[in-house]
């Protein structure tokens, strides 16, 4: 865990408003790739105005390079706005789906008990339970950790959604 939290220091969340056109995602991703930033998570979604889409990118790398990436991404003609967000100025949430082996009736009960307060059971089928939950990255990391002992079959996470606090646009 210590290692994980050290790594988190270099994780950045960048939000951009982009033209809703083919190819825009590639142009933005190229700027990150060229500077050696690995994209950890990426969410593209509709914005209020159908002409524009919202992209939220979570990526790992040093802050100086990130500043350059933000500037170079802002330069793209199809990018209306691009900026980094931190917890100070924004809220963030993500969603996780985790599939666990349900095993014996005893372990099923233990899973239900654990999940009850922290997630939702969405499906039980063929010896597997799917639980789902919304939370901050840390909350979902902790949920994952506590479910590990039951045997996680697979996990899908949405990546962060970010919104600026107050009247400031994201």
């Amino acid at each position: 865990m210590a290692q994980k939290s050290d790594k988190r220091k270099d994780i950045h969340t960048v939000s951009m408003l982009v033209a809703n056109k083919p190819g825009v995602l590639v142009r933005c991703a190229q700027v990150f790739a060229r500077r050696g930033f690995n994209i950890d998570a990426l969410v593209v979604s509709a914005s209020v105005n159908p002409k524009f889409s919202r992209m939220t990118i979570t990526a790992t790398g040093d802050p100086g390079t990130l500043e350059q990436i933000v500037k170079q991404t802002s330069k793209l003609i199809d990018v209306i706005h691009c900026g980094e967000h931190t917890r100070k100025d924004s809220i963030d949430r993500e969603y996780a789906l985790i599939k666990i082996k349900s095993g014996s009736p005893a372990s099923k009960a233990a899973i239900r008990k654990l999940v009850k307060s922290r997630a939702h059971v969405l499906d039980e089928n063929n010896g597997a339970i799917i639980v789902g939950q919304t939370g901050t990255t840390e909350e979902l990391d902790s949920l994952e950790e506590s479910l590990k002992k039951f045997g996680i079959i697979e996990m899908v996470r949405s990546g962060k959604l970010v919104m600026a606090k107050g009247k400031e646009p994201t």
């Binding site: 100086g64 500043e67 350059q68 500037k71 170079q72 802002s74 330069k75």
Partner: peptide
């Protein structure tokens, strides 16, 4: 004229 050159 290019803001991305600043500090590059």
């Amino acid at each position: 004229i290019d803001a991305a050159e600043m500090g590059k």
